Computed example of a mutant assay.
Amino acid sequence: MKVLTSVSLLSIALLAGCQSTSSPEEQTIRSNLCTMGDGNGAEYTSEKFEQAVLDCGGYEIITDDMVVDQELMFSFSNGKKQRKMVLMEDGTGQYSMLDKGTVQNITWAFLDNGSIHLEFEDGAQWDWKLIAEEGNVWAVKSYYADKDGYRDIMTMVVTNKTAMMQ
């Protein structure tokens, strides 16, 4: 009986230690994340991106107070490729690949529809549309295209770390 009790207590302790460290807001966004239309390849056009956004219920407007001088964190490959982006009021910004230790200068602008257009020094372009928001955590559907023809539609969870500290 002692062994069974010890095993049960150990199991409970291990399960408690394996609980997610994400915030309730992040858990809500992740559990409702709409990835319809996501993928990559030549057939993933800006028109397919617009359709993917509509299939996910449309989008909300991103405002300057949400992004200007804010530390935006997100990742790719199940969290292995950590990214940080800071956008300045003058239309410039920095895109950091934390896993590689590199930083790229970018330019950015709001589009008339309330989404963000990013441009990298190598000519790659990336559009972001906000499809859901829970506090300082967002679901963003994005469309990336580089000069070599690589195209990607992807939904990602973005956390505004600056807003978390306020």
Rank of each mutant, 00 (worst) to 15 (best):
N78A: 14
L87S: 03
S115F: 03
Q104K: 08
Q27P: 02
I61F: 09
Q82E: 15
Y143F: 14
Y44S: 01
N113R: 09
E50L: 10
I61Q: 12
G79I: 11
S46G: 07
I62W: 01
G79Y: 10
E25Q: 13
T107P: 01
W138P: 00
I131T: 15
L87F: 07
D38G: 07
E121Y: 07
A42Q: 14
L130C: 05
Q82W: 08
N105S: 13
N78E: 15
G57L: 04
L87Y: 02
S75N: 15
L118Q: 08
L33A: 10
D65E: 14
S96M: 14
F74E: 05
K84N: 13
T92S: 15
D69M: 09
V137S: 02
T107N: 12
L33E: 09
N105R: 11
E26V: 07
L87M: 14
D64M: 09
I61H: 10
S46T: 13
E71S: 13
G91I: 11
D127Q: 10
R30E: 15
G79P: 08
D90E: 14
D122Q: 06
K141H: 03
S115Y: 02
H117L: 15
E71M: 13
T102W: 03
I131A: 00
A109W: 06
M73S: 15
M88F: 11
D90L: 09
V103R: 08
G79S: 11
G135N: 06
K141I: 05
A52H: 01
E47W: 01
G93R: 01
Y143A: 01
G93L: 04
T92V: 10
V103F: 04
L87V: 06
K141E: 02
K100S: 12
Q82M: 13
L130N: 03
F110A: 08
D90S: 12
W128K: 06
N32L: 09
E134Q: 11
V103G: 03
T45Y: 01
E121W: 04
G114N: 09
M88V: 07
I116V: 14
N40F: 14
L33Q: 12
N105W: 07
F74K: 05
V137M: 01
M97T: 11
D55N: 14
K84F: 08
Q104E: 15
A124D: 06
D38A: 10
